[in-house]
Design a protein around this nucleic acid. Structure first.
Length: 423
RNA sequence: GGAGAAAUGGCAGAGUGGUCGAAUGCGGCAGUCUUGAAAACUGUUGAGGGUCACACCUCCGGGGGUUCGAAUCCCUCUUUCUCCGCCA
């Protein structure tokens, strides 16, 4: 959520930057400003009324003490009038504040100036590429066929137990999953991230804190009986650790990592893009989350990008990095880099990581602040990234490492799998 | 799931209708003393709104109510603790 004071003082900038997302924000922004003016005016009126009523109440107390009951009763009547007024005002104020908040919830973060203007993934900017695309043998297969051939992932069984998008990993497939999780976590902790195990269900306040609610509830599985949501990413419980928290400056940066399954309804997805592991309702992901001093957050973002690069270099997968355009940058993000692995057998790029700086957008909702050098509370910056999402990394490994003898396990994973080939 | 107790500032903990945004202790910050540090002493130290700055308003787990007036009384929800039951 953007800060009203910021919008008020940087109206042109906000409109101009939101245009990168192809949003004409003029009307919204004007509404924010007038709603806020109304809100402040009502607040001032209410405050004056309450001040008067507080003053009279004190006087009544004193009159009772000195036995002047009649005088006190006269004042009581006055206060009951004030009470009506203040009730009215506070109702008006309440609805104005609510309208303002609702409006603010609908305004996405303003993109960083580096973000290219654009509408779709076609406008994303490739900023880096590395690794070599392997030359596969003639009988090379896409991962879903490999999974069946070697009996390591059973999609049909998942269909039976739950439904589409809930695969069952078996034998070496399951072991490879566990190896990837352990390897990613080790890599992240070695880089200074503290490992957390987080709840997989979150309450409404947490959903609002990171921006999934109120608008995107359709993307989360909702346990209505208890009003809890299955997490779509560890970002939600991980970042909500810091909801309503004031950190001291010396505690920054906070770096945490965690493995969780992720649950996404993916309403509206269809076709070849959801084949096999490409898009699932339940998948595993290791996430990195940082809370940063505002002056350090972009350096931290670069650091996170380098960290993910390092992992992909270890895994020897061909990949590229995209700087997302305005239209493709998620609602809460100011700048996002996507990592994509090239799936040789499918001849397409698969998104495996998304690293973002949210600046104060989440922190404002979360009330995540730190005490700055002047002793004032200041909103911190939050960042997060996948390090990494498992299914498409697995797809990339299966497809790029396939040989006629079987699927070779990347060297760095072998200590974790205990085997070097799947055949 | 049943019965009982509790929730107050960074922490501990007082406060049962007005003088309470809240005693006291610890912690934090600043100063005195000291070559420096520690100790001791002195001062200071919650958040949000609002204002050029003050004033002023709101907040004692969340929400609602009683009252001229609520941290304090009532209702409700949540959480924690103790006991019982169940259980990986």
């Amino acid at each position: 959520m953007l800060q009203v004071a910021f919008i008020r003082e940087n109206k042109e900038l906000v409109v101009e930057r939101l245009a990168k997302r192809n949003i004409n924000a003029v009307e919204m922004i004007n509404n924010v400003i007038t709603f806020d003016e109304d809100r402040r005016r009502l607040q001032a009126e209410l405050d004056t009324t309450l001040a008067e009523s507080n003053r009279l109440s004190k006087e009544i107390g004193n009159l009772y003490k000195s036995g002047e009951v009649e005088k006190a009763n006269v004042l009581k009547e006055k206060t009951s009038l004030l009470k009506d007024t203040s009730k009215e005002l506070s109702e008006l104020l309440g609805s104005k504040t609510e309208a303002l908040t609702e409006l603010l919830y609908k305004i996405p973060n303003i993109p960083n100036e580096m973000v290219p203007r654009g509408n779709s993934e076609l406008d994303n900017e490739e900023v880096f590429a590395a690794g070599t695309v392997p030359k596969l043998h003639d009988k090379a297969l896409p991962h879903w066929k490999l999974a069946k051939k070697y009996d390591i992932i059973d999609f049909e069984l998942g269909n039976k137990i739950t439904g589409a998008g809930f695969p069952v990993y078996k034998g070496k497939g399951a072991r490879l999953q566990r190896a990837l999780i352990a390897y990613f976590l080790d890599k992240n902790t070695a880089a200074g991230y503290t490992e957390y195990q987080l709840p997989l269900l979150v309450n409404e306040a947490s959903g609002i804190g990171t921006g999934q609610l109120p608008d995107k509830e359709g993307q989360m599985y909702h346990v209505t009986e208890d009003n809890l949501y299955l997490i779509p990413t560890a970002e939600v419980p991980g970042t909500n650790i810091f909801r309503d928290v004031v950190l001291s400056e010396s505690e920054l940066p906070v770096c945490i990592t965690g493995y969780t399954p992720c649950f996404r309804r993916e309403a509206g997805s269809y076709g070849a893009h959801v084949r096999g592991l490409n898009r699932l309702h339940q998948f595993d992901k290791v996430e990195i989350i940082r809370v940063e001093h505002p002056s350090e957050s972009y350096k931290a973002l670069d650091g996170m990008v380098d960290h993910v690069k390092d992992i992909l270099k270890d895994l020897k997968l061909p990949y590229r990095i995209l700087r997302l355009c305005g239209g493709d940058t998620s609602f809460a993000s100011a700048l996002t880099y996507d990592f994509e692995v090239f799936s040789t057998a499918q001849d397409r790029w698969l998104e495996i990581s998304s690293v973002s700086n949210f600046e104060t957008f989440q922190a404002n909702r979360l009330k995540l602040r730190f005490k700055n050098s002047e002793g004032k509370n200041e909103l911190a910056h939050t960042l997060n990234g996948s390090s990494l999402a498992l299914p498409r990394v697995l797809a990339g490994i299966l497809e790029n490492y396939q040989t006629e003898e079987g699927i070779v396990v990347p060297e760095v994973l072998q200590p974790y799998t205990g085997f070097s080939i799947i055949n």
